[in-house]
């Protein structure tokens, strides 16, 4: 575990997200306090509906808290404008999904380049970095392939390359091994560990799987939207 800075990169106080379904209110995240230091590898565990994905989406700037405070990488996400949150998603976080979420009409190379191009970085520079990443992830032979031609492992590795293209400080992974066989699941976990251990990225993984346990610096067990257990 690399702890480069002593102040938390993620700081949440009384963080709450309530969804309204008709007349019913559901607290998916319920008054959570949380500090995550830079370079930590955190595993969020819990049953379906425990609030793991909601917490990840709050941390990733994909959703807005209903109550509480949330500071990530020096930004107050509660008060940030939509434009600032968009910028935050481009520059500070990289997200890896269970179902990969690669755009089907784009090739492996294009999918990888996309976040950097959205951030307005120059195309040649983006392409060079994407090629480096895809080479590291052993996808050079698949550059021009659409996602539908890839195996699950290849798709998730492409998603990892895409998450890294903007060199974010934080990597968020939602069930990254959920759609993979055990061999590919191992490979992906190794890669995430490498990102944390060798490159110093803060990695937060939400998962049911026990695969991540041995890599976790911090494990949080969520139940009904609250952190029930720290380990």
């Amino acid at each position: 575990m690399n702890e480069v800075f002593s102040s938390p990169i993620i700081k949440a106080r009384q963080l709450t997200r309530i969804y309204r379904l008709g007349q019913v209110e559901i607290a998916a995240v319920d008054h959570i306090d949380l500090d995550i230091l830079p370079g930590q590898m955190v595993v969020l565990k819990g049953n379906s509906g425990s609030g793991k994905s909601t917490l990840l989406s709050l941390l990733g700037g994909l959703d807005q808290p209903t109550e509480g405070e949330l500071h990530v990488a020096g930004r107050d996400l509660r008060k940030a404008s939509p434009a600032e949150i968009t910028h935050y998603r481009r520059s500070s976080v990289g997200i890896i999904f269970q179902s990969f979420n690669l755009l089907p009409t784009l090739t492996v190379l294009e999918n990888t380049c996309l976040p950097a191009l959205l951030a307005g970085k120059p195309s040649p520079q983006v392409k060079a970095r994407a090629l480096d990443l895809l080479d590291w992830l052993k996808l050079t032979a698949r550059l021009q392939h659409p996602p539908s031609h890839l195996s699950g492992g290849e798709m998730q590795r492409t998603a990892i390359a895409r998450a890294l293209i903007n060199d974010p400080a934080i990597i968020l992974a939602d069930e990254p091994t959920g759609n993979l066989d055990s061999r590919n699941g191992e490979i992906v976990m190794e890669l995430l560990w490498e990102l944390n251990n060798k490159l110093g990225r803060t990695v937060i993984i939400a998962t049911h799987s026990t695969l991540a346990d041995r890599y976790a610096g911090l494990s949080l067990f969520l139940k009904d939207g609250v952190i029930a257990e720290y380990s």
């Binding site: 997200i95 089907p104 996309l114 959205l118 895409r162």
Partner: peptide, 16 residues
């Protein structure tokens, strides 16, 4: 819609 949500998660603005 899902693909658009992916684009948004990758940093695409709603205007884009």
């Amino acid at each position: 819609r899902h693909e658009m949500a992916v684009l948004r998660s990758l940093g695409a603005s709603s205007r884009l």
